[in-house]
Nucleic acid binder design. Structure first.
Length: 277
DNA sequence: GCGACAG
DNA sequence: ATCTTGTCGC
């Protein structure tokens, strides 16, 4: 048995276990009817919107920084609460199984906030990744939404192509996206059964590329679209953009501190040794 | 077999 | 996700 097939077996075994775990969580997923009272928001916008993201240590498979921010209306550029944490990831990134790598550490940050500052719990949580727009109809936004039981929206920066499902960058897709002119315009992403799994949404006039919005948990696609648009000053919604910047900066600081430490700990190279032989 | 592949 | 600076354009 060669090395490559051992790796393949590990991935296969992992997927089988994760599929069972996913099916259990999936039973707790709540998807409100699109027409049903338009939820609690009823055309209004949430006052507090949360955002989560991870940044990674360059050249390190498991080192990462998790960030969770809460932004406030009206423009959601103001952060009223934030936390970052260095974490060690246990699972590899396998396409379709992102949640099993990222959901747990993010859920911990959110649960801590709910305990320490329950009054700041956001009415909506934005996640970097997909929700229903997923081969198992249960992406990170669904997974995390169920874990913390918060209304949750998935916002991906790239389309997760699922050729078997009819979600692909074909001619129709390119045409539809090219025709997005104004912020708020969408191109529906439909699977082969005719179900709309998500939207390619143009968030700002400047951005040529849309973001890919899908329902996570306890939210309708209409509300998801409305909220994402409302919290977007730039292409990426503010809460996610801030979580991204904060976690990146944390990593950058940490890597720099390491360099300084190593420079002081190791003896500086002795130039005289270069021609000492 | 080939290409695709959220983060 | 990350490796990476400047550069073209509004």
């Amino acid at each position: 048995m060669d090395h490559q097939s051992k790796l393949d077996n590990n991935v296969t075994a992992r997927r089988a276990a994760w599929d069972l775990e996913r099916e259990n969580l999936q039973q707790r997923l709540i998807l409100p009817e699109e027409n049903a009272e338009e939820e609690k928001l009823e055309g209004s916008l949430p006052n507090l919107v949360g955002g989560v993201d991870l940044s990674f240590v360059p050249g390190d498979e498991s080192g990462a920084c998790a960030a969770y921010v809460i932004c406030q209306a009206p423009n959601y550029q103001q952060i009223i609460w934030q936390r970052t944490r260095m974490i060690t990831l246990t699972a590899p990134y396998i396409p379709g199984y992102l949640a099993f790598r990222e959901a747990e550490p993010l859920a911990q940050l959110i649960q801590e906030q709910k305990t320490e500052r329950p009054e700041l719990t956001p009415e909506m949580l934005l996640v970097d990744g997909n929700g229903l727009l997923h081969p198992h109809r249960f992406g990170l936004a669904c997974h995390l939404g169920v874990l913390v039981d918060l209304p949750c929206i998935g916002v991906a920066k790239n389309l997760f192509q699922m050729s078997d499902e009819g979600i692909l960058r074909d001619q129709q897709y390119h045409t539809g996206v090219r025709d997005l002119r104004e912020p708020g315009q969408v191109f529906p992403l439909m699977d082969t059964s005719g179900r709309i799994l998500g939207l390619a949404l143009k968030t700002t006039a400047q951005s040529s590329k849309p973001v890919f919005v899908s329902v996570g948990h306890r939210v309708t696609l209409n509300t998801a679209k409305r909220v994402v648009l409302a919290v977007s000053t730039y292409r990426v919604p503010e809460p996610i953009r801030h979580a991204d910047m904060i976690s990146r900066e944390f990593i950058r600081q940490r890597v720099n501190a390491e360099k300084v430490f190593n420079a002081l700990a190791k003896p500086p190279p002795d130039p005289s040794r270069l021609r000492a032989d």
